[in-house]
Amino acid sequence: MESPLHHFEVHPVIPIHVMGVDLSINNAVLAMWVGLAVVFFFFIVVVKNGVKTIPGKLQSVAEISLLFIRNLVDEFIGKEEGKKYFPFVASLFFFILACNLVGLIPGSYTITSQLVVTGAFAFGIFILTLIIGFAKHGAHFLSILVPPGVPKIMIPLMIPIEIISMVARPISLSVRLFANMTAGHTVLAVLFGLAMSASVFLGWLPFGFTVVINGLEIAIAFIQAYIFTTLTCVYIGDVIKLH
C-alpha cells in the first residue's frame, strides 16, 4: 500500500524553465485548468444560451450563486462599495470552488492543498487590502492599528497586537483552506487504500466510507470556498469602513 500522502506529489508534465526558474506545467496545474475550464464554459454556455428574464436551469444555478456572492459582498463590504469588488470576489469563489471540487476526482489534484498557493492568494489579498486602505484613507489608514476607545497608555501595547492580528489574518486564511483540503484528501486516500488492499468481501466497508466521506468532502469544498470568500469580503470591508 502506497503512502496516503503520495497523491500530493507534483509531477511535471511539460517542463518549462525560464531564467533558471521552474515554471513547468505539472499535474496540479493541469487539474486546476480542468476545473477552471468547467467554470468558464459553464458561464459561457449560460451567456450564449441568451440570458432570459425567465431563467432556465443553468441560468438559475448561475444566478443563485452570483446572488449569493452579491449578498455576501453587500453584507460585508457595503452595497455601493461592494459593486467594485464583486467580480473579484465572485471569481475568487469560483476559482477556489473549482480547484476544491476537481480534486475530488480520483487521480486528479487539488491545487488548494498546496500551502504556497493558498498563501500566495492570501498574501495577494492582504496586499490588496493594504492598497485599498491607503488609497481610500491615505495616512489616516494607519489608525486601523489603534482600535477606538483605547486609553492612550495602552496604545504602545495595542499597536504590536494589532499588527500581529493583521498579519495573522492572511496566514490563518491560507492555512485553513490548505489544512482542510489536505486533511480531507488524506482521509479519502487512506480509506481508498484500505478498500483496495482489503479482501473482496470486506473491501466494500472502507469503500462505502469513501463514498460517504466523498460526499462530505464536496460539502467541505463548498464551505471552504465560501469561508475564504467571506473572509476576503470581511477584510476588504474592514479596511474600507476603518473600524
Binding site: 507534483v10 511535471p12 518549462i16 526558474v21 521552474d22 515554471l23 513547468s24 506545467i25 505539472n26 496540479a28 496545474v29 486546476m32 485548468w33 477552471l36 467554470v39 468558464f40 458561464f43 459561457i44 449560460v46 451567456v47 440570458v51 432570459k52 428574464t53 431563467p55 441560468q59 448561475a62 444566478e63 452570483l66 446572488l67 452579491r70 464583486f86 467580480p87 473579484f88 465572485a90 471569481s91 475568487l92 469560483f94 476559482f95 491545487i111 498546496q114 504556497v116 498557493v117 500566495a120 492568494f121 495577494g124
Partner: peptide, 30 residues
C-alpha cells in the same frame, strides 16, 4: 514557483474572462 505562477496567472485570466464576458449579462438580467 510554477504552482504560484500558474495559479495566479490562471486566476487573473479567469477573473478577466468572467468580468468581461460572464458576469455583466447575468447581473444585468438579475
Amino acid at each position: 514557483s510554477s504552482l504560484i505562477f500558474w495559479s495566479l496567472i490562471s486566476f487573473a485570466i479567469l477573473l478577466y474572462l468572467l468580468w468581461r464576458y460572464a458576469f455583466p449579462p447575468i447581473i444585468e438580467a438579475l
